[in-house]
Design a protein around this nucleic acid. Structure first.
Lengths: 228, 228
DNA sequence: TATTGGCCAATACACTGTATCGACGATAGA
DNA sequence: TCTATCGTCGATACAGTGTATTGGCCAATA
């Protein structure tokens, strides 16, 4: 074909410079806006004006992308300066920050604890937790932190799940009132769940994160302060 | 085409009678053996000698299948007869049963708390928890149970994740010793995580489920027994 | 016996994560 | 300044996913 009728090669859009940082940020934005399921390598790449395969220079698996996202959020959590105050205030603040991060990034609750977190920020988070306890026997420290972390993870996960359910039932209340509601009343009417019925029909009491956290801290306190 | 050369219609294998029960059981078997990621509607259907679309008579979504699987496991947890003993023993036994179920079905830990559980067995589980506390103000009951449940969920999830990591690093120890190990020692050598280093280099202390559970129960005890 | 209705599977579609490969651009060498 | 090389990027490809649609078979009904 003659030059005259042959089209020029498509002017390549200057490939925007990529970086792990930009990729992770794009993925987090996507997850925040459209949920974790919407995070596909294709969409993340598209958000950066790149082909999907380009990402594989920076990651070798989608799981790695998720790991990076989680560590990025850990970076939002861990305070810049070591917390003052006693061990209790330190652990409580850290727990609250974790919860707030999960409220900003709901997908974080889904990923939390689902894979070993060895990124620099996750390590810093652990470091902060451990140092908060000062000079307590290592074995004890690990178990106390583990217990508090377990509570935080579970409570955050439950709260996010609840929040999602409420939002969904709020969006199409029609459907809720026509399916879930009647189902529940019918189940409770069977009389097989009297205690559940009592709780559900009462005022809507949600478990309170801070209150439960205080109880857990009460529970571990003796091991930290060395009381019998 | 003449009858003589026309093949008979392929003798349809008598369609095995299906049921939600059988479907869920097949899905659980698959998840137990090959992990949750291996659970696809196609594979589950194939295990039952059925086409994928056949399942949609019994479910309308894959999520519903997962919900059914979770409720089935709740069925393994909730004891047949209401537990005797005091509230503390009751909650502790329930927590232990939950953990054991998760050890049998590791995928259970991934699903636990990720969606609202309203199945009959999940309700029975909640009912058992609530009645264990006897006649304590409803608001308190809900929060105490919520707190204990949060711990159980988190601890189980963390334990399963750890177990998986250990198994993976055991299977190809070569890879672990050549990547994760060196990475960790290098990170710890930076001196930025002294407390973590102290814990890691010490004897391998795992958080103990029962011990943490006891602490949490200690923490909530005053709200149950009415102590100040 | 003819017809209808319900169920089931085949097909189809949009999408996923990732392996492979060809072509292009920039760089190095003559 | 022209040429050869090399690394990088994207197009293509593949096997798999959840689910909507469709068409045909079987059994029960008129």
């Amino acid at each position: 074909m003659l030059v005259w009728e042959r089209p020029e090669p498509p002017s390549r859009p200057t490939p925007s410079p990529l970086s792990r940082e930009r990729i992770v940020r794009a993925a987090i934005d996507l997850a925040d806006r459209e949920g974790l399921d919407a995070v596909s390598l294709r969409k993340v790449a598209a958000a950066l004006d790149a082909g999907p395969m380009r990402l594989y220079g920076y990651l070798s698996t989608k799981e790695e992308l998720l790991d990076l996202m989680v560590d990025e959020v850990y970076g939002e959590i861990v305070p810049s300066e070591p917390p003052g105050g006693d061990w209790r205030a330190a652990l409580r603040d850290l727990a609250r920050l974790t919860r707030q991060a999960a409220l900003r990034h709901e997908w974080f609750a889904d990923l939390l604890g689902g894979r070993p977190n060895l990124g620099p920020n996750a390590l810093a988070y652990l470091e902060t937790s451990l140092t908060a306890l000062g000079d307590v026997p290592v074995a004890t420290v690990m178990r106390v932190v583990g217990t508090v972390n377990a509570y935080v993870m579970g409570a955050v996960r439950l709260e996010i799940t609840e929040r999602r359910a409420e939002r969904a039932s709020g969006l199409d209340e029609r459907e809720w009132q026509s399916t879930v509601g009647p189902y529940l009343t019918r189940m409770l009417a069977t009389g097989r769940y009297p205690a559940v019925a009592r709780v559900v029909t009462g005022d809507d009491v949600q478990p309170d994160f801070d209150e439960g956290l205080d109880w857990v801290l009460d529970g571990v306190a003796p091991r930290v302060t060395g009381a019998p």
